[in-house]
Design a protein around this nucleic acid. Structure first.
Lengths: 229, 229
DNA sequence: GCCTGGAATTGATCTATAGCAAGGCAACGC
DNA sequence: GCGTTGCCTTGCTATAGATCAATTCCAGGC
């Protein structure tokens, strides 16, 4: 469905870091070539092996990129409002290496590949913004890779909990998804997550209430994240 | 040390995929601004937290990018002749997330960041080549991530062994590094690697001689890599 | 040829985390 | 209210792979 509400789409694009320095006119033109994709919670957007119709920007909702081994799954990334995915497959002939689905009612802006490729050559600074975005993604992946391979489950969880809350704000945060999904994100089973949360709570480091987590002792959590606890 | 042998450097750069479509004159100019870095086996090129002086292209030798947890280490990537590293940190303010050292006597061409950034804006097609290179890297990392998190040690090893040999060439290949390093690359200990190799050999899937590996049954190896064995 | 040091093998344990099974709890429709 | 349906929790057991501890195997230097 071609968007009848160009302003909305333009606004969403304008707030993405990679378009921070793109002139308004160019952005409006890009928005006109884009379309929106509305998906209810639990929909499959694409499966491993398929292709993506363009760069995907999440306007609202929550998208899950995951790897599936028989039975269990590993969540590679959760993409929320104001974030994008699909950059890498734009510039490559390769098919998607992940499954993509929604964890909430979600609106996505689909920016087709062609105008983006044109912009890379014509719009000064855009290529660099895109490279910076991809570098960031690469960096984040390396960090996750490190967590998954050299740190243990309790360290990963501690680091994750700390990352959930604003460093100098209140110590309370909501989990962005169900504990089952969070567990898959952390590369552990829901059972292990449950046990670790209880242990942390018993040790007085956190308090848990449904999806709400309160950090009671950030010092010790940070130590635990480093394996120094 | 500024290179006194511009031809050599130009040739090395010309053979990198990302410069495939760069005009010879531009390449020569870039080569003039580059320098070479000769490091004996076992040298540390940079440590986590430091910065890199530019894009690093390996002319000959072998470079190891690794993550270190106390005691054990995980090898993220082995970079051989004709390959590059350090792209991501060029476009980001972030420090290196890995330790970098040489596993053999190595010559590196260091291409400083500034002229590359200029080329991104001025040289049509170069930005896209760079984006393609980074996409490839991202894709490879996702593949490794999947291997490390959803596949088991024997599956990872089977997949790795298959990837070592040319699909329609001879069934024999040399390990690119010591078994200790290969083990760290696969995210297992050298002891486990040793046991798995023996098991594969006993089951008639491979033959092992020092660093030489011969695949005797690719079918079963592929099955093992998929966990279907 | 003989030593010497790093790499590889092998065996004997140990442990973190998975897997299974059986509830428990909150939310929602009727 | 009261089942039904999805999470989530909790206890028990199983296991892949790590860790510890000896050897053994080479390759290179003298």
């Amino acid at each position: 469905m071609a968007s009848t509400n160009g302003n909305l789409v333009t606004g969403i694009l304008a707030n993405l870091p990679m378009f921070r320095h793109t002139p308004a006119a160019t952005l409006a033109s890009l928005a006109r070539k884009s379309r929106t994709l509305h998906m209810p919670r639990g929909s499959t957007i694409a499966r491993r092996g398929e292709e993506l119709p363009g760069l995907m920007a999440v306007a609202y909702g929550l998208v899950k990129l995951s790897l599936r081994g028989e039975a269990s799954e590993k969540v590679l990334r959760l993409v929320g409002a104001g974030d994008t995915f699909g950059e890498a497959v734009l510039f490559l002939e390769k098919p998607l290496p992940v499954d993509i689905s929604t964890l909430a009612d979600t609106l996505i802006v689909v920016v087709p590949a062609d105008p983006l490729l044109v912009m890379i050559d014509s719009e000064p600074g855009f290529a660099r913004a895109m490279l910076a975005a991809m570098s960031q993604r690469l960096h984040a992946l390396v960090t996750d890779f490190e967590a998954a391979t050299v740190h243990r489950a309790n360290e990963r969880l501690a680091a994750y909990l700390v990352s959930l809350v604003d460093p100098d704000g209140p110590s309370t945060a909501m989990l962005p998804a169900s504990k089952t999904v969070i567990a898959a994100r952390l590369g552990i089973t829901k059972e292990t997550l449950s046990r670790l949360l209880r242990r942390f709570a018993q040790e007085g480091m956190i308090a848990v209430g449904r999806r709400q987590i309160t950090l009671l002792d950030r010092e010790r959590l940070n130590a635990a994240a480093r394996g120094t606890g």
